[in-house]
Amino acid sequence: MKYLKYLFIRVLKIFTLVVFVFMSTAQIHAQDNVKEDALISLNFTENNNIKTIKATVTNQIGEPVEELDLYFFVKRTFSLLPIGDVFNTTDENGVVEVEFPEDLPASDTEGNVVILVKILESDLYNDLTVETTKKWGVPIPDKEYYQQNERSLWAAAANAPMSLIVSISIMILSVWYVIFYILYKLYKISKIKPYKL
């Protein structure tokens, strides 16, 4: 029994090894040899404020690639924001169209956005990223927008509200004027000489 069990485990081990070696070579094979490069050409059109990105995918010999999922992104501060539908699949002409959101803020004050179109995890084609900058975004406010010049209670000491500065100054000045006036008068008292001497 013990021998049988040992044999069984041994066989199982070899079997697993064989399966995995096979699987891994298959995978490496698929990656290195079977996949081919695709080409993406982008066409941007703007009609009646509707901005459309038209991507055409062709293979190495110029034939349109059908049934391929493309991913459309806009570059943001920390990550890439997906645009378009959940799946954007090419048609028989290798074409897919995606509408660019009209109210998306740009990355700069001039309206530039970085648009990326990607092929990801395709079984047949290598990963590919095409990056373009377009003036399609809503320009972000210029740097004056961020400057904290406004006077407020939470601003730095230099930007205290004028009304606060004025009223506190008036109060301090009036009270300390009286204090100094009294000190001056005390000084005057000290200067009055007695008659008798």
Binding site: V178, I179, K185, L186, K188, I189, S190, I192, P194, Y195
Partner: peptide, 23 residues
């Protein structure tokens, strides 16, 4: 500070006492 009950001194002191009492 040279206080010697001079009338001038008394007048000044009473005056500043009043001012300070209000302030």
């Amino acid at each position: 500070i040279n206080w010697s009950n001079q009338p001038e001194q008394v007048i000044i002191l009473k005056k500043i006492g009043r001012i300070l009492g209000i302030t």
